[in-house]
Write a protein that binds this DNA or RNA. Sequence first.
DNA 1: CATGCACCGTATGTATACAATCTACCGTAT
DNA 2: ATACGGTAGATTGTATACATACGGTGCATG
Lengths: 251, 251
Amino acid sequence: MELDDYIAQSARQSQTMADAIAAALRQAISEGALADGAPLRQAELAEKFRVSRIPIREALLKLEREGLVETRPRRGTVVTALDADAFQEILEMRLALESLALRLSIARMQEPDIAAACTILRQTEDALRDPPTTHDRSKEFETRWGEVNWQFHRALYHACGRPRLLETIDNLHLLFARHLRVRLEIIAPTRTGHESRDVQKNRSEWAGVVQEHRDLLDACQARDVSRAEAVLERHIRLNGDELVRRLVAAR
Amino acid sequence: MELDDYIAQSARQSQTMADAIAAALRQAISEGALADGAPLRQAELAEKFRVSRIPIREALLKLEREGLVETRPRRGTVVTALDADAFQEILEMRLALESLALRLSIARMQEPDIAAACTILRQTEDALRDPPTTHDRSKEFETRWGEVNWQFHRALYHACGRPRLLETIDNLHLLFARHLRVRLEIIAPTRTGHESRDVQKNRSEWAGVVQEHRDLLDACQARDVSRAEAVLERHIRLNGDELVRRLVAAR
DNA sequence: CATGCACCGTATGTATACAATCTACCGTAT
DNA sequence: ATACGGTAGATTGTATACATACGGTGCATG
């Protein structure tokens, strides 16, 4: 997918070009279309998006805010590269803030909130029952699954009614997901002969995740804060530590 | 203090005008020189800072990132107004993240870190022993004290070695401190006749804060994580809840 | 042969100029 | 009198053009 395609999606729903471009770049970077440290030259992007460098610069500033890119004055902007330490740090922050959001959320959760989370959980299960067959669809599936997976978490936190907290959590997740994807591709690139085994392995991993989600929802319904937090902590830690381990092993 | 003065301070140490202007505006807003909801018109700022609107726009984008201002497309930028709920939210986030930072910090603290915190604590005590006499100096004193107070917290968290975490905490504190200042001015404006009583009251409050800081440092030296966290939580909560109470009572 | 310096290409930072849109005011019609 | 629509002013968003600093290459020199 080229940058040109990203822009078309968000062009009309944003009120300014800078916003649309920021959204397009955000998605492109998040999907791993640009490698760690890849330079983002203003003139090049301006040509691609058919705008001047002004909205490009403003879009890059927004991305810098989110930690997706880094700019050194007069030396340009590059996609942020996160090492294992940074990954660990983001994980710890997620743990602290998502625990907080969950705790606050449980106290204020109503029926509709639980119903929404339940619906998404079912979608997750459906997605899991319909595994990808070809290699091309495997990656698409992975992306889709990652999204719906995060939607579930968001649904649980939504009732907390803390906009800044939710925004920060979203931001951290974005960073997390991007580097999760990039690193996994580097560490375990899907080779032609090993597709099915990789998918198989992921399927069983994901089944575990779904189970944890179910536990989480149960605890929320029961308004059992301490159990919910324990499950969430374990949930995040399991996935995160697993990855940090692979990262450390790979370097 | 006029905006022109702010710029002079940071003009030479920043590499771009946008950065310098962002720093100047940040300080101005933080000090409460601009009221909640005050409009920041680009042309006006451009004239004040003797630059074009381009670096102004970029500075405003940086401030938007930090939550100090809010921009609605084609409708301009205003200083962010925080209500009691937002204040509560920021307090909760501080609690979660500062606890995390402190916990991580204690595990990695070395002698120099403790010595640095100790030095700052002593400065705090000195500042307290030298109270302001005139009304003009009272506000200046308050600002200075707030800074050194925060420096102590920073010193404690510094050893954690988590740059993103520290940045986020700093950002939250900036928002917190700004609105603390603005709200207190609104709620209890220092009238000519009541200066000394106000200062007196603040002095006893602050003495309590210093005592808590000492407890905190003790717990860190003893590497007693749970005690340190308990003291910190109580410390932040006391100050915060006190303010939220006043805010709610005042509206 | 290594090292330091000067020049040039390239990319970013900023100024000026133009376009688009929002707000406020005023006139008109009901 | 009030509500509605249109126009003018002001303000933001973007394009184009210019200024400036960084990095590399080549040459001169010790």
